[in-house]
């Protein structure tokens, strides 16, 4: 009975962990090491253009795609209007170029764009990641 309870408890915990892993920040090159949360926040707020000494390019999902909305809400606690204002600030002061918006809401388009240059970084739901993804950071739901 104790073994059964232990098994059920473990199963529930594993379910909870998988349910809270939402998105992966990833690249297709092996040039980068895993990132801290702080570094990922700095990247997606446009506060740094460099990663481990290399100038990087970021991608984004289309504006009306729920993936984009949820990613920024979970990683930064910001909505899309706030993110637009941030990137307006950076773009119109010449400090950074906004992330490249992929043509349509598909992982295939994202992977195609990432594959062109080694220092390109994107994000996607974990269950849609390509097999050759180098995962740099996992965005988890903080309040399950």
């Amino acid at each position: 009975m104790r073994c059964l309870l232990f098994f059920i408890l473990n199963f529930l915990v594993s379910l909870q962990v998988s349910a809270t892993d939402l998105y992966a920040v990833f690249t297709l090159s092996s040039d980068f090491e895993p990132l801290t949360k702080s570094k990922v926040i700095m990247l997606f707020r446009g506060k740094t253009k460099y990663l481990q000494g290399k100038k990087i390019e970021l991608s984004d999902w289309p504006q009306n795609n729920n993936i984009r909305h949820e990613f920024y809400q979970e990683l930064l606690g910001k909505d899309l209007a706030q993110m637009n204002a941030y990137w307006a600030r950076l773009s119109f002061s010449g400090k950074a170029r906004p992330p490249k918006e992929i043509d349509n809401g598909s992982v295939e388009s994202l992977v195609e764009w990432l594959a062109v240059k080694r220092f390109r970084i994107g994000y996607a739901p974990i269950d849609l990641l390509p097999a050759n993804a180098n995962v740099l950071y996992i965005v988890k739901k903080e309040k399950p």
Binding site: N84, A85, Y86, A88, R89, F92, S93, G94, K95
Partner: peptide, 18 residues
């Protein structure tokens, strides 16, 4: 170039940004 003195100097004319 834009004069970079204050926090918002470089996007002074972009009201949507503040």
């Amino acid at each position: 170039l834009r004069i970079p003195i204050f926090l918002a100097s470089e996007y002074y004319y972009v009201s949507h940004a503040y």
